[in-house]
């Protein structure tokens, strides 16, 4: 009997406290991701990396991977606080940058965001948050020019749920962690020695005071990840999950979020009128004759 094999077969488990189907070989994953960053940046002619280091676990892992892939001296961590951002996040980001030995820069975004909205009435916090996310990415791309890669930090849970700002935090030159669920990324974080205080704190986009991902979503990542894993990785039908004991309302909600946000996960579509069209039937690989 090999119980591990059964776990790997992805037997449907409704218990979100049992993360066994999501368990990964962290060392193998680390190795694959470092090689991915090294090779794919080199092919694009990018020798440096810029990471938006928020103080959260996702960007912490990306920064650690980048330090190994690019060399510490070639990684710049940028922390871009708004006036409502927490000082704890700044401390965590600064402490981590120092620990892994990469350059750290703070670029506040309050002046430009507030200037933009100064004469606009009734700005919702989501709208302001989207602007902040895009402002941050604009700064990262500016600091990366001309030879740096902006590394994506969106994880698979966020990407599938559409819980991110399109062309904001979802934008990047390349993303090493987009195929890892939040639960898996936390495990990887422990493996690459991210401090416990960062790994264990409640995930937050920090777009407004008191925001946490799980309160806003209405479910925990542990709950969502097990559902997503079975729906996406194991191709289970929602009805099969319900039959196995999952909460039907949760499964339906998650499935709908994935479907409705799919437009965010593809390149902007192009209207086809010619004989050969980018994205439709002009299909060259990104790594076309690259070094």
């Amino acid at each position: 009997m090999r119980p591990q094999r059964e776990q790997r077969a992805g037997a449907i488990r409704p218990d979100s406290r049992d993360p066994s189907p999501l368990r990964i070989d962290e060392e193998l994953v680390r190795r694959m991701l470092v090689q991915f960053l090294r090779e794919e940046s080199q092919k694009a002619g990018l020798t440096r990396a810029v990471v938006g280091l928020s103080g959260g676990v996702d960007s912490a892992v990306v920064a650690a991977l980048a330090a190994e892939a690019f060399g510490r001296q070639n990684v710049l961590a940028v922390h871009t606080p708004y006036r409502t951002s927490s000082w704890t996040s700044l401390d965590h980001a600064a402490g981590l940058a120092e620990k892994i030995g990469i350059a750290f820069r703070v670029v506040p975004i309050t002046p430009q965001v507030d200037a933009y909205f100064r004469d606009v009435a009734d700005v919702s916090r989501v709208r302001r948050g989207n602007k902040m996310a895009r402002e941050r990415k604009s700064i990262e791309f500016d600091l990366a020019w001309p030879d740096g890669a902006v590394l994506g930090t969106s994880n698979k849970s966020e990407l599938l749920l559409g819980y991110g700002t399109w062309f904001g935090d979802m934008a990047s030159s390349m993303n090493p962690v987009g195929d890892l669920y939040k639960t898996q990324l936390r495990e990887l974080a422990i493996h690459v020695a991210i401090p416990d205080a960062i790994v264990r704190k409640a995930p937050s986009a920090e777009l407004w005071v008191g925001q946490t991902d799980e309160a806003e979503l209405g479910f925990s990542y542990a709950q969502a990840d097990v559902v997503l894993y079975h729906l996406v990785d194991r191709r289970a039908r929602p009805s099969e999950l319900v039959d196995a004991g999952f909460d039907g309302a949760l499964v339906t909600r998650i499935r709908d979020m994935v479907r409705k946000s799919h437009y965010k996960r593809v390149m902007p579509i192009i209207a086809k009128v010619s004989l050969r069209t980018i994205g439709h039937d002009f299909l060259y690989p990104r790594d076309w004759e690259a070094d």
Binding site: Q4, R5, Q7, R8, I24, D25
Partner: peptide, 12 residues
């Protein structure tokens, strides 16, 4: 292509 990084084994 390498894929399948579940714990407790090599690449799937």
């Amino acid at each position: 292509p390498g894929r399948g990084v579940a714990e407790g084994g090599d690449l799937g």
